[in-house]
Amino acid sequence: MADSDELMVFGVWTSHYSRRVELALKLKGIQYQYFEEDLSNKSPLLLKYNPIHKKIPVLVHNGKPVAESLVILEYIDETWKNNPLLPQDPYARAMSRFWAKFIDETIVALALKLRAGTEEEQKQTIEELRKHLKVLENQLEGKEFFGGDRIGYLDVMATVIAFWLVVAQEAMGGLEVMTEERFPILYKWIGRITKIDVVNEWRPPKEKLIEYLKARFASPKSV
């Protein structure tokens, strides 16, 4: 990043949406200024830079705001060419985008349903979630990372599974959605990414995240 560049990120430490933006920047070695938001009392700057959705994350580059995490990730990759996250091949890029949407629109959406509904509905959600996690796991077959032999765009997206879903299971009293026995390939991938220094420096503190999630699960109205 040029010395004249000004880069800001507005986020929430518990949000995998904003944390994935930070990870992308860290993987590229880009310096930025971080602003932690209180979503119950949003800052004037957040409302200024994202007046449409009024949500995090927002990246502001030289005064120009970019919202929505998937859009931000692509902006980062296109603006700073070092350590590319997305594949260069057009088909591989399209497939990375497809699976990224699959993670957000299917896996994350189902995981969010775990805290609501009856016990029977929760069981059905777990079974459906396992089915889709297995589909995603198949994309890792024979590879070190989703991106191939190095961490990439889809790996950044999938950290929600490694560092949020796994922790959420513990926070919900040992709820068993995914285990190493059921998903050996995913767990080997988790082992690999946790050996990457940048990822370990970035990952949310486990105990602190468990405490936050326990409070959230106990109070449906909590932020």
Rank of each mutant, 00 (worst) to 15 (best):
A2I: 02
S4V: 09
S4R: 06
D5V: 01
E6T: 15
M8C: 10
V9M: 05
G11L: 06
G11I: 10
V12Y: 01
T14W: 09
T14I: 11
L23Q: 01
A24W: 04
K26F: 09
K28I: 11
K28S: 13
G29Y: 10
F35I: 07
F35H: 15
E37R: 05
S40G: 15
S40E: 14
N41V: 02
S43N: 10
I52C: 01
K55S: 06
I56S: 03
I56N: 08
I56D: 03
L59C: 08
H61W: 06
H61I: 04
H61N: 12
N62D: 11
V66S: 07
A67T: 14
E68C: 04
S69H: 04
S69Q: 03
L70Y: 00
V71E: 00
V71Q: 10
N82W: 00
N83L: 08
L85K: 03
L86A: 06
Q88T: 10
D89R: 01
R93C: 07
R93Q: 11
R93N: 13
A94V: 07
M95K: 15
M95N: 12
M95V: 15
S96C: 15
F98K: 11
A100G: 11
F102D: 05
I107G: 07
V108Y: 12
A111W: 05
L112C: 10
R115E: 14
R115D: 04
R115H: 01
R115G: 15
G117W: 00
T118C: 12
E120V: 13
E121P: 05
E121A: 13
K123Q: 14
I126E: 12
I126C: 01
E127F: 03
E128F: 00
R130C: 07
K131A: 10
K131G: 06
K131E: 05
L133Y: 08
K134T: 13
L136A: 08
L136W: 03
L136C: 03
E137W: 11
Q139W: 03
E141K: 08
K143Y: 04
K143L: 12
E144G: 09
E144S: 13
F145I: 04
D149A: 08
R150V: 09
R150W: 08
I151A: 02
A158Q: 05
T159I: 03
V160M: 05
F163L: 12
W164A: 07
L165F: 08
V167E: 06
Q169M: 11
E170S: 09
M172H: 10
M172E: 15
L175E: 11
M178K: 05
T179A: 14
E180W: 11
E181I: 02
R182W: 03
P184D: 09
P184Y: 11
I185P: 00
L186N: 11
Y187N: 07
W189I: 10
G191Q: 09
I193C: 06
T194N: 06
K195L: 11
D197S: 13
V198R: 04
V198K: 12
V199K: 01
N200K: 14
E201P: 01
P204A: 09
K206R: 15
K208R: 11
L209Y: 01
L209S: 06
K214S: 05
K214Y: 06
K214N: 02
R216C: 05
R216S: 13
S219I: 09
S219K: 15
P220N: 09
P220H: 09
K221H: 12
